[in-house]
């Protein structure tokens, strides 16, 4: 099965993600370019981390208008699996494929460390079979998820919170570390699963995202 990884100008976790995908039996990484539009050869799409367009205006604000994102929006609307990590999560929110926005961290500074997240949903294509607690690295300056009361109420009622921080590192409302859309096929999170796929590099808790996909696509 082919998993497309989109490279935007300024993406810097795209190669890491492709390597992580290629470690998993049954999956093959396909590099996708932001100026292209063709998704016919892929079974799932990943929007990787980085600083698309430098994140200068708002994180993800410019990348969402790329030709590839128009295709990703259609792909998502067909109910097919889309995962956004870090900057990818920010892009999904800016593109309104996921609710809310990611604001500057509570302490106003970039933060790179391991965090423990609690897995609240295992019925998405990316979270099937995940343990209820994962240790994953975060590395972001804008991971503080915020939404208005009504949105928070709706997504909490609808069970769209997929991951919560055990100890909130960035001020995110309701400790939200990751979300899915109402249809459950689009998932976004701030921690980096692709950095936790090797025991020598600080754990393998990120592998489950990809093995879940193998199961779902089989």
């Amino acid at each position: 099965m082919n998993v497309g990884v989109v490279t935007f100008p300024g993406s810097n976790c795209d190669a890491d993600f492709r390597r992580a995908i290629d470690r998993v039996e049954g999956l093959r990484a396909v590099a996708l370019w932001h100026k292209d539009t063709d998704l016919s050869g892929v079974d799932a799409v990943v929007l990787p981390g980085g600083f698309s367009y430098g994140d200068y205006l708002r994180c993800g604000a410019i990348a969402r208008f790329s030709p590839m994102m128009q295709s990703v929006a259609r792909f998502a609307a067909q109910g097919r699996p889309v995962l956004g990590v870090c900057n990818g999560f920010q892009i999904l929110c800016e593109a309104h494929l996921l609710p809310g926005v990611l604001m500057q961290n509570r302490d106003l500074s970039f933060l790179c460390k391991d965090v423990t997240i609690l897995v609240e949903r295992t019925d998405t294509p990316w979270t099937r079979g995940l343990a209820n607690k994962l240790v994953l690295p975060i590395a972001h300056g804008d991971g503080n998820w915020q939404a208005d009361d009504e949105t928070v109420k709706r997504i909490e009622g609808d069970g769209q919170v997929v991951f919560r921080y055990q100890s909130n590192p960035n001020g995110a409302r309701n400790d939200v570390a990751g979300l899915c859309n109402a249809a459950r096929n689009v998932v976004g999170l701030m921690p980096h699963p692709e950095r936790a796929v090797d025991p020598l590099l600080g754990g393998t808790d990120g592998l489950g995202f990809l093995t879940s996909l193998v199961e779902v696509l089989a």
Binding site: Y53, G54, Y56, L57, A61, I62, S66
Partner: peptide, 14 residues
């Protein structure tokens, strides 16, 4: 102004 340059590029793309 890197931010201005990036926004300008974004507007051109749009």
């Amino acid at each position: 102004d890197p931010a201005g340059e990036a926004v300008k590029g974004g507007l051109h793309h749009l």
